[in-house]
Design a protein around this nucleic acid. Structure first.
Length: 646
DNA sequence: TTACTGATCCTTTTT
DNA sequence: GGATCAGTAA
């Protein structure tokens, strides 16, 4: 019989409420924590990890905590470190994607990849699909690249391999593209975001001896935002937790907002039946006290979400801890500008009262709405920062420089080569590229090597290709001399004349961005224990918009509602509350999608710590045409009881 | 091959 | 209102 130790007075439950305490202390077996908005979820998770390591002497190496964004994992790790005040070496607090990259790099040969595989983001995916469509003679009028990519992503998210895909769709062109897409990625020694999870699962399924290493290692597994997991993620958690069975998932079905990218809300709803065994029932804890929102705001949110019919009936609604606060002000503007003006007015008033601008956020449904806001903020001289939209690492000049570096890291990276072989212009155009592609494919060699051997082009072109190849060899030699990332980049910018190429086109902003990129490298090299090109490229590939968010910037924040999940602000402005915008036009026909829009609205409302401002416009420019808008049904659902028209 | 121009399609949300 | 794309002239 094991000695029973009473942990109920551990330092890690001080200041927690009763349910939170139990949720921290119950570490054995499968545990489901239903954590409503603002219920102290992160606190419970971090205290739980601290409790495991400090009180129960669990080795940090035996703990795996998975989140959805780098920002969340970084924060969580910092909070744990702060709590335990000791070495957290070996503790994995990571996203599903980073975990995939990390494990796959340890066992690349098992799936036929090299350790130095590249990670392809959306732009590489797009160009690759385009090339494949051309190659397979698929009519670009009949198939959108975007649609094909979403099929591919869905296949991978459901763990359907190319050879099984024909059973899933009738249209065999889609299957062919998928099949070719995967084989091209492999040729290029590259994986896209989905592959980082998809291949990881394959690795585990095909190599039980590898799976066992991790099953053995991770005695305690925690998964945050479990309501947003897809099939692959479900399978990964199931496999990894099989050995020890200590799996704790945390989530809230009312905050599930990613079904469109494959998230399956059933994962959390079925957790109890799924993980209970004859000798061990799933323990279920419900955190339903909200410490974040003013009472009225929270009750409005409760009322709103009660319109969703597909909730599991046994979940209680959230109970406010704070006082009622004021009614929710609602402003109806003539148009988007009028709405933006009102937001600015309110913010200026708050500023006069001494409010720090970083405590305010503007939340909208679509990125496109940021423009009108931005214009008004500039006019009024209110400093702001926008998240999402055009992301830094998606900019052309940044991708160009990174592509040069990728080619050093992974010589098979064909997308990187095609991207920069003619940037700056070297007289190598589309026609030559097509020849290069087919030559490389026919000879089954990476296109980079084909530069040296290609015999299907004229002598002039051949000379140009060879010129680039020689530059590459020189660059590679320089790389092997162990220069820093910053020096590597300076070298390439100089040798390729990239800077002058931008200067000649008067691209000041792009030049500044390149400087900024070099700064990120310097910063990376300074902060990282063991900085490598591989590490840097991986980091830049997997950054999310929200990762750069700083709490105390002195700026008003603008972001989409999706980006706001997991954050909280004193003053929240939810704008564009109009039918066909929010709820979005594409979601009106489908009851499931509509409920997801409502959950998104619920997420927005529950970000509020002090005051929530609602607004919409009577007319709005959409795609350049003026449209008359109807106020959102969500306003009606919140009800007059809580709303005050201003 | 490049650089420019006009036509066309969009746009929901993202790791 | 903008990004991307196809077509055309140099």
């Amino acid at each position: 019989m094991e000695e029973v130790i009473d942990y109920s007075n551990t330092a890690f439950v001080a200041g927690l409420n009763e349910v939170q305490k139990i949720a921290v202390l119950e570490v054995e077996g499968p545990v489901l924590i239903l954590a409503g908005a603002g219920s102290g979820k992160t606190r419970v998770i971090t205290h739980r990890i601290a409790h495991l390591i400090r009180d129960r002497q669990v080795s940090p190496e035996a703990v795996l905590a998975v989140t959805f964004t780098n920002k969340a994992s970084k924060e969580m790790l910092e909070r744990v470190k702060h709590l335990i005040q000791e070495e957290s070496r070996g503790l994995w607090v990571t996203t599903f994607h980073s975990m995939g990259a990390k494990i796959l790099r340890k066992h690349p040969e098992a799936l036929g990849f090299d350790k130095n595989f590249s990670i392809y983001g959306p732009s590489e995916q797009k160009t690759l699909v385009k090339a494949i469509m051309k190659d397979l003679n698929i009519d670009p009028k009949r198939y959108q690249v975007k649609t094909l990519l979403s099929y591919i992503s869905n296949f991978k998210g459901d763990n359907i391999h190319p050879e099984e895909a024909h059973k899933e769709v009738n249209d065999q062109n889609i299957v062919k593209v998928y099949d070719k897409f995967q084989s091209s990625l492999k040729e290029a020694n590259a994986m896209d975001f989905d592959d980082l999870q998809f291949h990881l699962l394959t690795l585990f399924e095909d190599h039980p001896e590898i799976l066992e290493i991790y099953q053995e290692r991770f005695e305690y597994i925690l998964v945050d935002e479990y309501q947003d997991t897809n099939q692959i993620q479900y399978d990964l958690v199931k496999l990894l937790s099989k050995k020890h069975g200590n799996v704790c998932v945390v989530g809230d079905e009312d905050q599930s907002i990613y079904s469109w990218r494959g998230a399956n809300i059933q994962n959390i709803i079925n957790f109890t039946s799924d993980y209970s065994t004859p000798d061990q029932e799933v323990k279920r804890y419900e955190l339903n006290i909200n410490y974040r929102c003013p009472g009225n705001c929270l009750r409005a949110a409760n009322l709103l979400i009660s319109n969703n019919t597909q909730r599991t009936t046994d979940k209680q609604s959230m109970i406010p801890h704070k006082d009622d606060g004021d009614m929710l002000p609602y402003f109806l503007g003539f148009d988007g500008h009028d709405e933006a003006r009102d937001v600015c007015r309110t913010i200026l008033n708050l500023q006069d009262e001494g409010v720090n601008l970083s405590t305010a956020v503007i939340l909208y449904r679509t990125h496109a709405q940021s423009r009108v806001m931005e214009q008004q903020f500039i006019r009024e001289g209110i400093p702001y920062q926008i998240f999402g939209g055009h992301r830094f690492f998606e900019r052309k000049e940044i991708k160009d420089v990174l592509a040069y570096l990728s080619l050093l890291h992974n010589a098979k990276d064909s997308e990187a080569l095609y991207r920069i072989i003619n940037v700056p212009a070297r007289g190598i155009g589309a026609a030559t590229l097509t020849k290069l592609r087919s030559f490389a494919e026919n000879h089954r060699i990476p296109p980079l090597l084909a530069l040296d051997g290609i015999d299907t082009v004229g002598a002039g072109v051949q000379k140009k290709l060879l010129g680039f190849y020689n530059f590459y060899l020189e660059f590679l030699d320089f790389f092997h001399e162990n220069h820093s990332l910053v020096d590597l980049t300076r070298f390439l910018l100089e040798k390729t004349d990239y800077i002058n190429y931008l200067r000649s086109k008067d691209e000041h902003e792009r030049l500044e961005n390149i400087d900024e990129l070099i700064n990120t490298m310097a910063e990376y090299e300074e902060n990282e224990e063991n900085p490598t090109l591989e590490g840097y490229l991986e980091k830049t590939a997997l950054v999310a918009a929200i990762d750069g968010f700083e709490e105390d910037s002195g700026l008003v924040t603008m972001m989409t509602l999706h980006n706001a999940k997991g954050l909280e602000f004193d003053y929240v402005f939810m704008v564009g509350l109009e039918e066909e915008l929010f709820p979005h036009a594409n979601s009106l026909e489908d009851a499931n999608l509509l409920e997801e829009e409502r959950r998104l609205c619920y997420v927005g409302v529950t970000r509020t710590m002090k005051e929530l401002y609602l607004s919409s416009a009577r007319s709005r420019y959409i795609h350049g045409v003026e449209k008359y808008q109807v106020p959102s049904r969500f306003l009606r659902e919140i009800g007059d009881e809580f709303i005050m028209k201003v």
